[in-house]
């Protein structure tokens, strides 16, 4: 039974996972651990610092994963790593680690598309067979459906990703990045009740978030510098919690709308949410209502699989490896731009 180890470090999470595929059974997760680079409030994670973080932690994390899994090095069939897309410096650090392990242990390498990793892990965990996929994270916002051996992008954000929009708004409000800015916005949004008017930008199956961010940043800065902002109906003061609430309600409505359009287009009633923003319970709830109205259901995973992790890289890598795919060492590069639909999905019909 093939075993793969997966290394992920395309953004600020360094993840190592070990997976075993047994024929006819669900994949077995032997280890799935992660270490996150958390920047101070008001700051994002810079590529340079993130790369240093990954280099510092990768050896320890691989050792711990092997220990936890109880797998001997001899039993590992391949080393999978994130080829892209992602931030250059962190990707390179992890690619070097993967290459080193491959040479050290004399194992084949498998370069994995990060987005395909998310999709395959989501399908494996939830059992969703052929869903429309909403992939939402700090770097990606895509509506994807499978057709003819490729994950095809039906809609996407035309400028910044939804997660990037949330992260940057968290910086404006000086919200903590621990455990994640999006998580803290979600908690604040639960206390918000006034909906302010925010631009709503959907174009067919595409959407755009930069205008929304610009608007709400300006609104928040006005508020922080003492402007008296009130709800026109109740006359109550607008709070930072209201802003988080309004941002979520508006941006998520856009995501659900483009997903619904894609579902109508391809005639599917299943929807799978993957990526870090996919952890958000309000997004899951809204998607659930939409899917139910269409006679279908929503599939989502928890933070272990939604947020970047090593196991998804191991899983998608092992699927490709079993079709005979490997990445020769002299081609084991990484790239910041690597579209989901570039990957030939040989393991599906």
């Amino acid at each position: 039974m093939p075993i793969a180890i997966g290394l992920e470090g395309s953004a600020n999470k360094l993840g190592v996972g070990i997976i075993r595929h047994a024929p006819g059974k669900p994949a077995e997760i032997l280890a799935n651990i992660r270490h996150t680079f958390v920047s101070p409030p008001g700051e994002g994670f810079l590529p340079k610092d993130t790369a240093i973080h990954h280099r510092t932690w990768v050896v320890g994390l691989v050792k711990r994963a092997l220990r936890e899994s109880g797998v001997a090095i001899a039993d590992v069939d391949c080393i999978c790593y994130t080829k892209g897309p992602g931030m250059g410096a962190p990707l390179q650090s992890v690619a070097i680690a993967a290459r080193t392990l491959a040479l050290l242990w004399d194992k084949p390498l498998v370069g994995v598309n990060h987005c395909v990793g998310h999709i395959e892990m989501g399908r494996e965990i939830t059992g969703a067979d052929n869903p429309v996929v909403l992939y939402v994270s700090g770097g990606n916002t895509q509506v994807i459906a499978y057709a003819d051996q490729r994950y095809r992008i039906f809609g996407e954000a035309l400028d910044i990703a939804i997660g990037n929009c949330l992260d940057r708004f968290a910086r404006t409000l000086n919200i903590s990045n621990d455990p994640a800015p999006g998580y803290n916005i979600e908690q604040m949004a639960k206390k918000g009740k006034h909906l302010i008017d925010i631009p709503y930008t959907v174009k067919g199956m595409d959407c755009s978030f930069s205008g929304i961010l610009g608007f709400i940043d300006a609104y928040a800065n006005d508020m922080l510098s003492g402007a008296d902002k009130r709800d026109p109906e109740t006359g109550e003061r607008i709070t930072p919690e209201d802003l988080c609430f309004s941002l979520q309600e508006t941006a998520f409505a856009m995501l659900v709308e483009i997903t619904e359009r894609a579902m109508a287009h391809v005639g599917s009633s299943q929807v799978l949410i993957v990526g870090g923003v996919g952890c958000n319970e309000r997004l899951q709830e809204m998607m659930g209502i939409m899917a139910a109205e269409r006679g279908g259901s929503v599939y989502a995973t928890d933070e272990r699989f939604c947020i970047d992790n090593g196991i998804m890289i191991a899983h998608a890598g092992l699927l490709a490896f079993q079709t005979g795919f490997t990445t020769p060492i002299d081609e084991s590069t990484c790239t910041q731009r690597f579209r989901t639909d570039e990957v030939l999905v040989k393991w599906r019909d």
């Binding site: 008017d197 709503y200 309600e249 508006t250 409505a253 659900v256 809204m286 939409m290 109205e293």
Partner: peptide, 13 residues
Amino acid sequence: RKAYRHATLDLRL
């Protein structure tokens, strides 16, 4: 009406 979105936003859109 789309039940998934906030009633105010829904009406506006």
